[in-house]
Amino acid sequence: MTRKLDPADRLVIATHNAGKLREIAALMAPYGMACASAGELGLPEPEETGTTFVENALLKAHAAAKASGLPALADDSGLSVAALGGRPGVYTADWAERQWFEGAPGQDYKGRDWYLAMGKVEGLLCQLGSDVDRSCWFSCTLAIAWPNGAEAVYEGRVEGTFSWPPRGTMGFGYDPVFVPQGRTVTFAQLDPEEKHRISHRADAFAKLVAAQFGA
C-alpha cells in the first residue's frame, strides 16, 4: 500500500531554487500541504551521483527527509533525444555548464548557459545528416521520501521534436527548441498555463495526486 502524505505535515521541497519552490508549492496548495524549500531550512545539497532520473530524485528526497525529519519531495527532469541515444538525459543540466575552454560561465542559475546546451544538441544532430530523426522527449521524475525510509516515485513524459533555431522567450532550459507533439510552436512560445497543462511535470504530478490524494 502506498504511504499517503498527511496535510497536517509540512512538506520539504528538495530544492534551493526559489522558482521551483513556488511552482511546486502552488501545485500542492489545493491539497492543504504547506511547503518549505531545502534552501529555506538550510539543508545541504547532496551531490547528484545517480545515472537515472529516478536515482537522482530519490537521492535528493531522502537526503532532505533525513536532514529535516519531514516528508520531502524532489524532482529530476531532462531532455532526451532519440538520435543521440537518449542524451543528454540525466545529464541535461551538465550540458549547460561551460568548460574551461568554452569561456566564462553564463549568467543563468548556477552559471548555466542553456543556449550553449541547445547548440551542443543541434551540433551533434547536424553531424548525423540533414534527414536525422529529431524526435525527443522531456522526462520528469517526482520522488517523495519519508524520514523512516519509505518512498514513492511518479514519472511523467511529453513527446516532441527538437527544432532549430530556438524560438520563444516564455520558457526556460531547452524549452525554445522543444515542439510538443501536436503543436507547431515551442514550449517557450506556448502560454505558460498551456505548457503546464501538457508538460512532463504535469503528467508526473497528476500521477502523484491520484496516488497521494485520490479516494
Rank of each mutant, 00 (worst) to 15 (best):
L125C: 10
P166W: 06
K66P: 00
F205D: 04
E97Q: 14
V12Y: 08
A143D: 07
D203P: 00
V121K: 06
Q212M: 10
A63Y: 05
P46A: 00
Q127P: 03
V121P: 03
K120W: 12
Q189L: 10
P71W: 01
G89C: 09
V153W: 08
Q99I: 01
V185A: 11
H62D: 00
Y31Q: 06
T169F: 14
P176I: 01
H62K: 07
R10W: 00
S135Y: 01
A64N: 05
L59P: 02
A25P: 06
N56M: 12
S135V: 03
L190P: 01
D131R: 12
V90Y: 09
D75F: 02
F213T: 02
F138K: 06
I198E: 11
V81M: 03
A211M: 01
F138Y: 15
G85R: 14
P180R: 11
Y115P: 00
A82L: 10
A57R: 00
E45T: 14
E193N: 14
C136M: 06
D133K: 12
S80D: 06
A63V: 01
C35R: 02
L84Q: 05
E159R: 11
P30E: 13
N148T: 15
D76Y: 08
D133V: 03
A65Y: 06
A150F: 06
A93S: 12
A14Y: 06
H200D: 01
K195S: 02
V153D: 13
N17C: 03
I198C: 10
E193C: 08
R22S: 05
A82I: 15
K120D: 10
A25D: 11
G111E: 07
L59H: 08
F101C: 09
W164Y: 13
S80G: 15
E122G: 08
F205N: 05
V209E: 09
D76T: 07
S130H: 14
S199T: 05
L59D: 09
H200S: 11
L128Q: 15
S163F: 13
H200E: 04
K120P: 04
R183C: 09
W137V: 01
G214N: 07
G78W: 01
F178H: 07
F162R: 10
Y31N: 08
V12D: 07
P105E: 12
W164A: 03
N56A: 04
D108H: 05
E47K: 15
T169M: 13
G85Q: 09
M33T: 02
V179Q: 02
L128E: 03
V81G: 11
V54A: 15
G173L: 08
A206H: 10
L124I: 00
S139A: 14
R134S: 02
K110N: 14
D9G: 01
